[in-house]
Design a protein around this nucleic acid. Structure first.
Length: 682
DNA sequence: GGGCCCGCAGGG
DNA sequence: CCCTGCGGGCCC
């Protein structure tokens, strides 16, 4: 019994045993792994004998020589009974909620990587399908923020960080070496996140479960368009910083998620996890409009969105919550757009004040994360990703790392969809306020006084506007209401397992569902054969041959085909991610079953080829599909093909490289069309 | 990989 | 109309 119930506090400071938020005095911090533990819930034998010993105290996990897998079974039965009775007696819970909490309890409670009030993983459901093959070797639970080692083993981010935090540099499973880069900067393996979610979904669909809501998490496929470069920007000889058409009809001062009603283009809205190539493209979909500034807002009205892209050293990202730094205090003379050096203090004015308004009112603030943030495990793998809405619970000022006063904001996630890194099937539940140490030295602390405008409705079990959202003061970007476009609204698609398999588990080289998947240290996934083939002989040059300079300087560097990370060491002995492979194979079997049982229900979309062009491609796009460059040239013959090709390939960080010619051509064809439309409008 | 320097969009 | 701004292509 003893060490089974020994669990630390989670990322939000909540004790995983008693679910309370212990005060600083009741918290012990392990000297080895720096994890906080609730003293009251520690076995007596694990507590430090005296107060003086507390500073050098080592937690039960670090005290063990080996990572002893913690049993998922619950501890003492009397405790369990008491806990179940407490749930039953809680009149504030619905029957469904009670059932859910009972199940959490029986599933062994929280694992080390769960957070806040999130219900625990429905382990039993998933184990039926994937037979436990995905479990983290440390906590024996499904990894909630899975990371994959180069040797192909999967762990919770938290467990992995704890392990390397102890100075361990070998895989806990096979004792292979963990590269320094992976140890210091593990990235979430999003394919694995999807694997876990899909496995859960497949199960709950079969059981006709109450989780009826389709999980709409998408990758970059189906993106209808790209930003275009204006003629003026071309004349200036620069292909930078030009905006494209805004596709959503939400006004620029719209708060909260961009829902389907604002998306006449796709009729699905902006989905959590949606990723764009760059800030320009992100802007086009309305998630975050400014293309340089990190904050969108108006000082007298509120802030609608922020971007985390590593521009401010003080930022601190914990996924479900983060500390954001205000803007300003920098010297921008010399026509600079940004400057990493701070030279004066920040104040609550302009955009910083806009954020403070959103804090006071409790507005939902959209959050996008850029790949440029190098210090966060939650950063996008490539491009810019929409991560849902957060609320600013507090703001204050403090002296920043550069010695000047900065404005600070505590963001806590409150979205109805799960975060891109979370393998949960559901969105956020209200979670307790994280403990922020720097508040002790803060000034101008601002907290919300009244009730928040955007809040969790226990009855409906979702986040919603509890007060009417602020009235927009602006016109929509297109000036056209979505209901007035005359477009027939399509129902959002509820994807089949087959479609999702193709979308989420396709190799980034061959575009087919991966066989023998390999996860690189930069968290990209490929077929074993494709990856090996890509680096056989001259293929290396084709890989990186984006332009002449790249060829010359990079031909001897072996980089991940999906990003710019050097994976030469990894390629010496790449290991198949067997666990991911099991999941894919299981889902493929499910898929076959699904096809057999409901083949007649498959509509127009089922026959779609995985690599086919997006559905709104013109009939005459066939030629362009075969020759994307031709399509490009057709568009602007006068400026020459070279410029176009270059701009076509700019910033191809992740999904774009993996895009096979057909998809590329589909996009190109679409873009051609869009540019024509834009030109006609001018 | 770091510095330069540009157009652009939005706030006030 | 001026100021601000967590971009981005290109040069070195």
């Amino acid at each position: 019994m003893a060490h089974v119930s020994q669990l630390p506090c989670d990322g939000d400071g909540i004790c995983m045993v008693c679910k309370e938020n212990p005060s600083a005095e009741e918290t012990l911090t392990c000297k080895t792994c720096a994890t906080p533990w609730h003293v009251g819930c520690l076995a007596a034998s694990s507590r430090p004998p005296t107060m003086a010993d507390a500073a050098s105290w080592e937690c039960p996990d670090c005290n063990c020589v080996d990572p002893v897998p913690v049993s998922a079974a619950p501890g003492g039965s009397s405790d369990l009974l008491a806990a179940i009775r407490a749930i039953e007696a809680d009149s504030s819970l619905s029957e469904q909620e009670k059932a859910r909490r009972r199940q959490e309890l029986l599933c062994g409670g929280a694992g080390p990587s769960s957070s806040g009030f999130d219900p625990k993983r429905t382990v039993n459901d998933v184990l039926d399908i994937i037979d436990g093959s995905l479990n983290c070797s440390f906590c024996m639970q499904l990894p909630e923020r899975p990371v994959t080692t180069p040797c192909g083993h999967n762990f919770c981010l938290r467990c992995f960080q704890k392990w390397v935090g102890q100075g361990k540099r070998t895989c806990a499973n096979c004792r292979n070496e963990i590269p320094a880069k992976m140890a210091s900067q593990p990235r979430i393996n999003s394919a694995l996140v999807m694997a876990i979610r899909m496995a859960k979904m497949a199960k709950s669909n079969n059981a006709g479960s109450a989780h009826g809501r389709p999980q709409h998490f998408i990758h970059n496929q189906n993106r209808p368009d790209k930003a275009f470069t204006t003629e003026r920007a071309k004349r200036a000889g620069k292909a930078n910083a030009c905006s494209g058409k805004i596709f959503v009809t939400a006004p620029p001062d719209h708060f909260g998620p961009i829902t389907a009603e604002y998306d006449p283009e796709r009729n699905q809205g902006v989905l959590v996890g949606e990723t764009w190539e760059d800030r320009m493209e992100c802007r086009q979909w309305g998630a975050h409009l400014p293309h340089v500034a990190g904050i969108a807002g108006q000082s007298s009205y509120g802030a609608q969105s922020v971007c985390l892209s590593g521009g401010y050293q003080d930022d601190e990202d914990h996924g479900e919550w983060f500390l954001y730094t205000g803007s300003g205090g920098r010297d921008l003379t010399g026509n600079r757009r940004t400057n990493s050096e701070q030279s004066s203090e920040q104040k609550f004015e302009k955009l910083n004040e806009a954020l403070r308004v959103s804090c006071k009112k409790g507005y939902p603030v959209r959050v996008v994360r850029s790949h440029k943030e190098k210090r966060s495990s939650y950063a996008a793998e490539a491009g810019v990703r929409y991560d849902g809405v957060y609320r600013i619970e507090k703001c204050w000022r403090k002296v920043g790392v550069q010695g000047f006063m900065v404005c600070r904001y505590l963001f806590v996630r409150c979205d109805n969809d799960p975060a891109p890194w979370a393998s949960d099937e559901h969105g956020d539940r209200p979670r307790p306020m994280p403990v922020v140490k720097e508040l002790n030295n803060a000034i101008d602390i601002t907290e919300r006084k009244g009730s928040p405008a955007w809040d969790y409705d226990e009855e409906k079990a979702c986040w919603m506007w509890k007060k009417p959202p602020p009235i927009s003061k602006k016109k929509t970007s297109t000036g056209v209401d979505s209901s007035a476009t005359g477009k027939v609204k399509r129902r959002p698609r509820n994807m089949s397992i087959k479609d999702r398999l193709l979308k989420e588990f396709s190799c980034q080289i061959c575009r087919k569902v991966m066989s023998f998947p390999i996860t690189t240290p930069c968290a990209h996934n490929f077929c074993k054969a494709c990856l090996e083939g890509a680096f056989a002989g001259k293929s290396i040059m084709r890989q990186r041959g984006r332009e002449g300079r790249s060829l010359r300087t990079q031909k001897n560097i072996m980089k991940c085909p999906a990003c710019t990370i050097d994976i030469a060491d990894f390629l010496q002995n790449p290991q198949v991610n067997r666990e991911l492979m099991d999941v894919i194979e299981t889902l493929q079997r499910k898929c076959e079953e699904e096809e057999n049982s409901e083949s007649e229900e498959e509509g127009e979309r089922a026959t779609e080829n995985p690599g086919a062009a997006p559905e709104d491609a013109d009939d005459d796009s066939t030629e362009e599909i075969e020759n994307p460059e031709k399509a490009e040239n057709k568009k602007t013959e006068d400026t020459g093909a070279e410029t176009n090709l270059k701009s076509n390939q700019k910033g191809r960080s992740c999904d774009d490289i993996k895009a096979a010619a057909v998809v590329d051509a589909g996009v190109a064809a679409n873009r051609g069309k869009r540019v024509k439309v834009a030109a006609a409008a001018m």
